[in-house]
């Protein structure tokens, strides 16, 4: 029991850390990559919560499809230098 609790706490800490870094990292590309890492950690959390359906959907949609959309947008928005207006 205590080993699984320790794993849960570690996973929760990793979730918070990756979300924090995704929001605070200066480089937008790194931020999106960290957000994808956050999505994959979240998949583990769903597995721990006995929710394999959500884990499947999160891995395919949350980490995969959202990540692809965001990375594509980084490419499009980064084509001009930021702070130009």
């Amino acid at each position: 029991m205590s080993a699984s609790l320790a794993f849960d706490l570690l996973l929760a800490a990793a979730l918070l850390w990756s979300a924090w870094r995704a929001l605070a990292t200066p480089d937008i590309f790194r931020a999106v990559v960290l957000f994808i890492v956050f999505g994959l950690l979240l998949t583990l959390a769903w597995a721990r919560l006995a929710a394999p359906d959500i884990a499947l959907a999160e891995a395919a949609i949350g980490a995969g499809l959202t990540g692809a959309l965001l990375l594509d947008a980084v490419g499009a928005l980064g084509s001009r230098k930021d702070g130009a207006p």
Binding site: L23, A73, L77
Partner: peptide, 30 residues
Amino acid sequence: GLVFAAAGAVLFAMGLAGIVLIGHLLRRIL
């Protein structure tokens, strides 16, 4: 369940603060 619910509460607050504080639209979407 309780561990991840608590983590969820902190994530919610973190995202909320992010939306208020961050100007860059992509980061706001994150």
